[in-house]
Design a protein around this nucleic acid. Structure first.
Lengths: 220, 220
DNA sequence: GACGAACACGAGTGATCGCTCGTATTGTGC
DNA sequence: GCACAATACGAGCGATCACTCGTGTTCGTC
């Protein structure tokens, strides 16, 4: 499931291990196992309450083996969040890039942006929860910041395309609020299934429409 | 600042100390000191990363003294969240109870409900953050659940008063979404000051109005 | 002023945790 | 098949933490 990650440490890291290690297929698989185990355990019990020995055990290896792939516990969290953020960014770009936004009605535009996001978050439960979790180390949380900023920027760009006359300040504000509304509704949507999820999704879209319609030329 | 709390333990508690202790004025003050110190440290470093010895030190006492007032670390978190929830509930009721809601315009209604909430959260920074924090023990988080449900219920009641024809399902959904929108905007509003806070507050109200107006008789 | 309860202290205890290290096995390049 | 890197193991080290306990001090009450 996971693949990359060769720890070539950040700034303040004391690297006991060699800078770069030529991973064999076996090693890459082990890294994936560690990240899978860590994701599950972090989501279950939180970062602090999860011991590295427990991660190693869940990944089917000894503590010593785990530390052949990661220099410390924090590096596991960082690698995990980096990986999650990458996947989320991919999902986001597929949601944002397509189509000339000016040709769509506001309803259509909202559909095109919201639906893929919900699909991604639904298939990756725990991803958002982990990145938003305050007990994760600073590095793991910080990894999500650029993503959030990028998302807000893109929404702002779309708003500008549709309403070029809107002052920059108001436009950025509207983008931020829109993103926050989506984020606020995501947990219950992901937790729900079937008809309930559809109902919640429809409600989210109503909220977005109600907020954005007064700004939009399409808003009747 | 804080006062009550005599630990007469919940269900599964092993109480080494006597069930009830007659607190002297000195003791009540010490309890307040402990809760103040814990609130600050939990907000700074999170629950897990805060040691009981550190709480005692910040409160100006020895670890032994701390444990004369609380049976364990979790009890401190519980007492803290219970206290916070009580204060928030008071602030909420003053926001909800007054005035016959049917006599107000939707704009006025939103003002009357949102402004006191913002005022409370602004003067109690960290309160909401603590209660929403996932690394707090289950008991401390659970304490906020009844409050949230009560708030949603009250909003639902207000919606029903204004739009009696709305089906119960839709009404409850609208209440939940409204509360989530408010909660989502609260952190940046609390973090901001002056003009910025006012701008964010206005934006929150716009979002609420846009979402609720289609349901409301006043909405046009 | 005496007596018990509440309050206060802080060194210490047992358990846990992140991480190491010495050693043994497996894979790769030649 | 040899040499070396990569992988693997798990007992255990040092540090930290929640909490205890023995002892001493202050308060309320009569």
């Amino acid at each position: 499931m996971f693949v990359k990650v060769d720890f070539v440490g950040g700034e303040g890291m004391r690297v006991t291990q060699p800078r770069t290690v030529k991973r064999q297929a076996r090693g890459r698989q082990r890294i994936a196992d560690i990240l899978d185990a860590a994701l599950a355990l972090f989501a279950e019990n939180g970062y602090e309450r999860t011991s590295t020995n427990a991660i190693a055990a869940r990944a089917g290896m000894s503590p010593g083996s785990l530390y052949q792939f990661f220099p410390n516990k924090e590096a596991i969290a960082d690698a995990l969040s980096t990986h999650l953020v990458e996947q989320m960014r991919d999902a986001h770009s597929s949601a944002f890039d397509l189509a000339r936004v000016t040709d769509l009605t506001l309803h259509e535009l909202i559909d095109r942006m919201v639906d893929p996001l919900i699909a991604f978050n639904a298939t990756h439960p725990g991803a958002k929860a982990l990145l938003a979790n305050t007990d994760m180390p600073a590095g793991a949380q910080g990894a999500a910041r650029p993503l959030h900023e990028a998302v807000v920027d893109r929404v702002a760009a779309i708003i500008q395309a549709r309403v070029p006359t809107l002052p920059a300040t108001e436009r950025d504000l509207a983008a931020m609020v829109s993103v926050r509304i989506v984020a606020a509704m995501m947990p219950p949507i992901v937790a729900a299934e079937g008809a309930e999820r559809r109902a919640l999704t429809a409600e989210l879209k109503k909220a977005l429409y109600g907020y954005l319609a007064p700004l939009d030329p399409d808003g009747s």
